[in-house]
Amino acid sequence: MIELKHLGKIYSSASGSVEALKDVNLTIADGEIFGIIGLSGAGKSTLVRCINLLERPTSGEVWVDGQNLTALSEKELLHVRRQIGMIFQSFNLLEQRTVLRNVCFPLEISGTPKAEARKRAAELLKVVGLADKAASFPSQLSGGQKQRVAIARALATNPRYLLCDEATSALDPNTTRSILELLREINKSLGVTIIVITHEMKVIDQICDRVAVIDKSCIAEEGRVADVFTNPKSGIARELVLPQERPVLDPTTGGRKLRLIFNGEDTQTPVISEMILACRVPVNVLFADTKSVEGAAYGHMILELPNDEHDAEKVVSWLKNSGLTWKEER
């Protein structure tokens, strides 16, 4: 279990000081995949780097398995770090070592005999699906493959925790999905507790059990992913959960435009088809960006009404009685 208690971090330099973390309190249970999401500069990296004390918090305590890391000596800390694996956005592999020797590295450092280290590294490469790349160098791999090597390397010392700082942010959507699947597999089969830092909701969506939303150095909201998604309480969570893209519409053509906003309506109800059937009027869907989370719809949709005044009015009055959230565009 990881417990962060009243964690604070102030970076001070000659040019002033930045408060990167303010009174952060989190408890991460064993075996879960915990997400930390926030916008750029919110303090995500600082937070995750405080967990293994790569960054020393200026106030508060970090407890891992009942041990107060902030009270440990440098030497004791080195030992604890071996139980906390970490992967990064930029992979950070040793470019001059082969893939196999990269995975061996943390084992060599902790004094495992070479032959044993190689055996374990080869097994891990199988786990991440890169057994055939053992003799390659990182420069010969794709981004996704590099991250797999980094994952294997982070798992080499059998850590109980895995910290992932924007581990998929440099990867394309398909590769991201496969890396996240791998992480979930590792969580299930090895029981490794995973902490995922990201600015992308879809990452949280895909693998996390619980999520904390961090905004301007503070935890704005925390809870089960489904709860935060279906009922975001903080402004920042709403902003992150609800799709943000704004479509560009041509105001000079067509009839009136209406924006329908879905704030967790039942996806089982076919709203649009009901509307069209009831009004018997053709409507044009200009734009739609919705997603469903546990049977609830989030997002928005822009409809173009027919040019005929009468037909358009029919739709509007139907909407007024429907209980849906909508507004006239422009």
């Binding site: 790569l54 990064f88 040793l94 001059q96 590295f105 060599e108 450092i109 980094a150 010392t157």
Partner: peptide, 24 residues
């Protein structure tokens, strides 16, 4: 980042210099 990764693995500073910095 490479140095940071080594620190996260629990390398001592001397290990980092000898096994990471100079070889890289």
């Amino acid at each position: 980042g490479v140095i940071e990764a080594a620190q996260a693995m629990g390398c001592t500073n001397l290990q980092i210099i000898w096994h990471v910095l100079l070889p890289e």
